[in-house]
Design a binder for these strands. Structure first.
Lengths: 318, 318
DNA sequence: CTGAAAGCGCTTACAG
DNA sequence: CTGAAAGCGCTTACAG
């Protein structure tokens, strides 16, 4: 430890650097240490520190591929809540993959203070030697989730009110539980409202390009099946439908209404602007980070589900 | 080290676990060790390992706030190139901030194998005890950059060909050098083509919402100044212009042509579809990761700048 | 082919 | 109020 050039012992430096010098180290000595630290540009070695201490100040957020801008919002919420006390690092899975046990294992090695897992693959047993909080993992105990029901109900009521009687569903390929829930809630609500859901199967990765490719064939199938509205499990999927409909001259919403989930920032500038069930990503991130912080302090407050609501725009409203 | 339950010494376990047992440990013993490792779910402690070894297998990518989907592409490129040998972790700066020296310092503590810095604040001296590669940092030696000139030339030629003689520029607030370069190249090319650049100042964070807010007042100023086209330093900024123009009934491109930089996936579905200078993010990520990998092996190959080109869509073409 | 030992840079009781 | 010492879990020469 180079900074003992301050003329004191290693232990004293450690105390000062960690701000544990109150009433343990005299002011002039502490001052000398700080000066030496500054001069030498010293920065405590994280590996050694975590080793000695048993765990570090890192918080790991494991998220799926970031091509869905939704995650950027989540990350921002986490960051804002974690503050300076903890250092956030992100890990992204491979495109099209959900976070799984192996990812959590991999990051346990880093001895983080805690791990956040966004939209994990279903039915994983995500226990670790450090606190783990899951986001967007319906059915998992202790997870921070959206209450999707109100948003879906509003969407179906909206479509029913416009006279739609047969709709298509554009699902993600993601194995995350939240997608199964979105589909199930929509089907249930549709049935209750007397709306049929087309058997046409359409699934794609959550990128505009993948969605466009799938929509290229799915669009015809939907139209052949007399579908008048398509609900996509994510806005990025809906963009694909908009793109194909636009290039084929299929009027939206005249011939086909389109809606999504997420309400991404860009959904207000699409052609036409997209109706969407708003999932406030930053709120989710904040709630999850807060829950982790509470866990650190030994608490375990129940986190209520986050509300969702429908944002109506031109892609359905005409 | 728990796994010595395999009945061997700690050192032997270490050798086997790190795959350095070739010709040093007998096959049956190695086998016994592996079995024990599996049974106990043992995973080597990263902190201890990095400490003993001097550095770890982490690669840190420091990026600005991820609300610009462009970065998702960059990340994907980095990930794909790094492969399994290294573990990528991301860090994002606070919204509106560029990566700076302090961020690099912070991550040096982790003893990563290397650090990647995307669009750092200008004029930073980003040296560290580990290899650092900068992305999108024009003017920095060893940085991996776009060759923006051809894209900008094409854009200006395109606008000139359409008869535009006075254009507005919508800049980012980012202090990253790449934004200064975009502006300068555009101004130079415009002058050469006999196009005037309006003195109206418009700058915003690279989010659709921030851009919309700024565009709300800037749009009037541009129109008052007889501007017939606006070039935005990023697609997300252009989205803000499209949004305001749409809600005000200003015809795009009839009254005002709009173009951006990035060519985000969603730019093909905006209303109208956005003309943009394509900056292939994944390519940038791949090139930077490759450069870092070469550095690890002691090499220092020159990386050529990545080509850019104009993608023409309805927002300018009519 | 295998094991005992030193050391990586810290932190934290503990004794002075 | 301060310092010497043990120990965190590994890796890697080195000796057997």
């Amino acid at each position: 430890m180079v900074a003992e050039r301050a003329g004191t012992s290693i232990a004293t430096v450690s105390l000062v650097v960690n701000g544990k010098d109150r009433g343990r180290v005299s002011a002039p000595i502490a001052e000398r240490v700080r000066a030496a630290v500054d001069e030498l540009g010293y920065v405590v070695d994280h590996a050694a520190s975590s080793l000695a201490r048993g765990s570090g100040d890192l918080v790991v957020l494991i998220a799926p591929d970031l091509s869905n801008p939704f995650f950027a919002e989540v990350i921002r919420g986490v960051r804002d809540t974690l503050g300076d006390r903890y250092q956030l690092v992100l890990s992204v899975t491979e495109r099209g993959q959900q976070p799984a046990v192996a990812d959590v294992r991999r990051f346990e090695r880093l001895r983080p203070a805690g791990i956040l897992v966004e939209a994990p693959a279903d039915h994983q047993d995500l226990v670790a030697s450090v606190p783990v909080v899951q986001l967007d993992a319906p059915g998992e105990p202790g997870a921070v989730n959206y209450d999707l029901e109100p948003g879906v109900q509003q969407l179906v009521a909206h479509l029913a009110g416009l006279g739609h009687r047969r709709i298509g569903y554009f699902d993600g390929t993601s194995r995350a539980a939240t997608f199964a829930v979105r589909r199930r809630l929509l089907e249930t609500a549709a049935r209750a409202a007397g709306i049929a859901v087309s058997p046409v199967v359409a699934r794609a990765d959550l990128t505009v390009d993948a969605a466009t490719e799938v929509a290229t064939t799915a669009l015809d199938a939907w139209l052949d099946d007399d579908v008048t509205a398509v609900v996509a499990a994510a806005d990025t999927l809906a963009y694909g439908v908009l793109r194909v409909a636009g290039s084929r001259g299929v009027a939206v919403p005249g011939r086909l209404a389109v809606a999504g989930f997420d309400d991404l920032p860009s959904s207000s500038v699409t052609a036409p602007a997209l109706t969407s069930v708003a999932l406030p990503g930053a709120d989710l991130g904040r709630a999850a980070a807060l829950r982790l912080l509470t866990t650190f302090d030994g608490g375990a407050a129940e986190v209520p589900s986050l509300p969702t609501r429908l944002v109506v725009r031109a892609s359905t409203a005409g």
